[in-house]
Every structure is written in C-alpha cells, then in structure tokens.
C-alpha cells in the first residue's frame, strides 16, 4: 500500500471537517474522492500534504507514518499536491514556478529530466516560459500547477478539483493528462466534484459527505449502482 489513511479526524477550531475517514491507495492506481461541497475533500488532501494537522488517526506513506511532518518533508518524501485554486506564484515567471519545485531534486540541474518531461507534456508552458505566471489563462495555470508538482518527481500526486473553473473542453484535456501520468507510473489521488468525470477516470472511488465516508468501491461497480447518485445527494448509508 502506497498511502493509507486510518481513522482520520481533522478539525478547524472545534468543528470537525472530517469526522472519521479511512482510505488507501496502492501504487499505480488512480483513486478519486468525490462528494458535494464542504464534504471535507480538500481538507483530506491538505492533511495528507501536512498542511493541516489531524486531530486523530494516522497517515502512512510507504509504510511509514507521515502524520505531523512538515509539508516540505512530505513533499520531499514523494507526495505532491496540486491544490484547489492552483495557487501558482503569479509574480514569478513560468520557469521560476518550476524552479521553486526543483529543490526537492537538489536543483535545476538534477531535475533536468523532469523539466524536459513537463515541457513536453505541456507545450504551452514552453511558449510562455519567461512570461509571468499571473498572466496565464485558467487552463494554462492548471497545467502549470500540475507541471510544478511533477517537477518534485512525486510517487503520489494529489490533485484537488483540477477542472474547477475550466471550460469542459479544457477539463477533458486535464483529465486526459492525468490518465497519461498514470501510464508513466505516477499514482494519483484526485478530488472531483463531478461524479461522472470521477468514475470515468478512477479505478476506485470514495464518496464523502459531511466529513464521513459514505460509499466506496471500484468505479465501474459504483457507476452501475443506482444508490451511488442517491448517496451523493444525501441518501443514507448503504445497509
């Protein structure tokens, strides 16, 4: 098991955003986390990335607990997060955005292969290489955010709502890219609001609502399960 989250609870102040969540991701898989707004999906991603500290539970990566480690240590251990809202550095150039991520590899020189790879994957970044990242379009920024995470050479790539704010055509392209990343050997945990897209992408899918796990299973099974949609929109837990 590459990643296993065990009885995770996360609170903001007193209010739990995640009550209790266990999930796992094996090497080579694409796993999706779906659920309505406020379900706790982003919180789960941030907890794995070390940005928010869990109140209870454990997070293990490659068999070792990463709970409580600082974000930079987790990034260097091989987990990269493409966060919700992309959070690119708008006042840095495209190139500089990538350079920031190269430290985990020991520098630009050592990360040369990663640079070549992401620039081949996202040719538009090559075109805008020395332009300010703040001037990219939403779709280009999303590509930059993924490219930047890939420079860290992650074993596990976490992607939070990559299609947010993108036109459907661009969203399709991003999902196509995520599929191609898996073929190159990257494991992915992806948060997606649209259940349809998630089920089409993932090997397995977890459905979260109000900070709790409602359903999970292989995507093709869930896609055929009439209860899935019901549960997504507020039905009870399956008996």
């Amino acid at each position: 098991m590459l990643l296993s989250v065990d009885s995770l609870q996360v609170r903001y102040g007193k209010a739990p955003a995640i009550h209790e969540l266990s999930l796992c991701v094996s090497a080579g898989e694409i796993v999706c986390l779906v659920g309505p707004n406020g379900a706790g999906k982003s919180t789960c991603m941030l907890a794995i990335a070390g940005v928010v500290e869990p109140a209870h539970g454990d997070i293990q990566f490659e068999g070792r607990s990463i709970r409580g480690l600082p974000p930079e240590t987790i990034a260097r251990a091989g987990i990269s997060l493409v966060p919700e809202g992309r959070r690119i550095f708008g006042r840095l150039t495209v190139r500089e955005n990538l350079v920031v991520a190269s430290g985990a590899q020991g520098g630009v020189g050592q990360a040369k292969a990663q640079f070549d790879r992401v620039l081949a994957l996202f040719p538009v970044l090559q075109e805008r290489y020395n332009g300010y990242a703040g001037q990219l379009s939403g779709g280009e920024q999303q590509q930059l955010a993924i490219a930047r995470a890939l420079i860290c050479k992650p074993k596990l790539l976490l992607v939070d709502e990559p299609s947010l704010g993108l036109a459907p055509l661009f969203a399709d392209r991003v999902f196509q890219t995520l599929r191609s990343l898996r073929e190159d050997g990257t494991t992915l945990l992806v948060v997606e609001q649209s259940a349809r897209r998630a089920l089409a992408l993932a090997d397995r899918t977890y459905l979260l609502r109000s900070g709790r796990l409602i359903l999970d299973g292989p995507s093709n099974v869930l896609a055929a399960d009439p209860e899935f949609e019901h549960a997504y929109f507020g039905g009870a837990r399956r008996p």
Binding site: E72, A75, L92, A101, A104, V108, C152
Partner: peptide
C-alpha cells in the same frame, strides 16, 4: 539563484512553497 526564487515564492504563498519542498 534558486534560493532567491524560493524566497520570492515564499513571499507570495509560503505554504504553497513548502508543499513544493521549500524548507521553511
């Protein structure tokens, strides 16, 4: 320099810089 670029990135979004491996 990479360290200089990291400082500028950290000034813009410190947590994001850390998530990319920049040591706080």
């Amino acid at each position: 320099s990479r360290a200089g670029i990291e400082i500028r990135a950290a000034a813009e979004d410190f947590t994001m810089a850390r998530m990319l491996g920049v040591r706080a």
